[in-house]
């Protein structure tokens, strides 16, 4: 068989503008390769969910402990911007799905078009996120310039939480909501950026003709990743912006 490395399985390209795919040497069939990568990626997505699971657990624990803090904190976020971002991500999930579909049917230009739209969605999302963060900064709810300053033991105060307008006055540990908001959205934002980077990488491969009806596995996997990023936001939005 293939122990000498000379024999390998090749999936032919569907046309001259595409490149054939060589199945990795240790797989016997393209199906085995496809299923292995897919299973591996689903497991990876499970670890992502568990990672966020820890954050969600912390959210619920403190929401239970300090419901007033969370209710009032949630009111300081702009739910309209949050809803806008939710729609942007939902739309981008659709464009990503269309991108994957186009790749599966060897439609190079359409794949590039829909993946491009998805990246645009990611950019819009991050720009809106930036304006939201800036507003929190202006009201002293998250003072980014003092984020990493040490805790002031003499005044017992947190340098990054100033609350200039006193909107959070009277509730216990008002910074907790914003700390959790920042941590969850920042880690999610990092995933958005990574996802956009992966989509750009997919576009590069598509332009070179590497992905087509015979081999679209990476496009499929990046699509899954993007849907997960959206899914996590679907949970973040009501929990943070529409605190019950």
């Amino acid at each position: 068989m293939s122990h000498d490395g000379h024999h390998s399985v090749v999936i032919p390209a569907p046309g001259p503008e595409f490149v054939p795919h060589t199945v990795a040497h240790h797989f016997d069939t393209p199906v085995q390769e496809f299923q292995s990568m897919k299973l591996g990626f689903w497991l990876f997505l499970a670890t992502e969910i568990l990672l966020f699971g820890g954050l969600f657990a912390a959210y619920f624990y403190f929401h239970e402990s300090y419901p007033e803090t969370f209710r009032l904190g949630g009111h300081q976020l702009d739910w309209k911007l949050g809803a806008l971002n939710t729609s942007v991500l939902l739309l981008s999930s659709w464009t990503m799905a269309m991108g994957v579909r186009s790749s599966q049917t060897s439609q190079k230009q359409k794949t590039l078009f829909f993946c491009g739209l998805t990246v645009l969605g990611a950019v819009i999302f991050m720009v809106i996120k930036f304006f939201e963060y800036r507003a929190k900064n202006e009201h002293g709810l998250i003072v980014f310039s003092e984020l990493f300053h040490p805790y002031d033991l003499t005044t017992n105060s947190l340098p990054w939480f100033k609350d200039y307008d006193g909107v959070m006055a009277g509730v216990p540990h008002p910074h907790l909501f914003f700390a959790i908001y920042l941590t969850m959205t920042a880690i999610h934002g990092l995933h958005v950026v990574i996802g956009a980077g992966l989509i750009l990488w997919i576009m590069k491969g598509t332009a070179k003709g590497r992905f087509h009806a015979g081999y679209y596995l990476p496009v499929d996997l990046v699509g899954l990743y993007w849907h997960l990023v959206d899914l996590i936001w679907i949970f973040l939005f009501p929990l943070l912006y529409l605190v019950p």
Partner: peptide, 30 residues
């Protein structure tokens, strides 16, 4: 696969506590 991510987020949260005092493990901060 199923247990380690929880450790990952835990040590990350400790790092955040030290970097910007997120407060969830710190009794001074609730």
């Amino acid at each position: 696969v199923l247990a380690t991510p929880v450790l990952g987020i835990t040590v990350l949260l400790v790092a955040f506590e030290r970097l910007y005092h997120i407060g969830i493990f710190d009794p001074r901060l609730g």
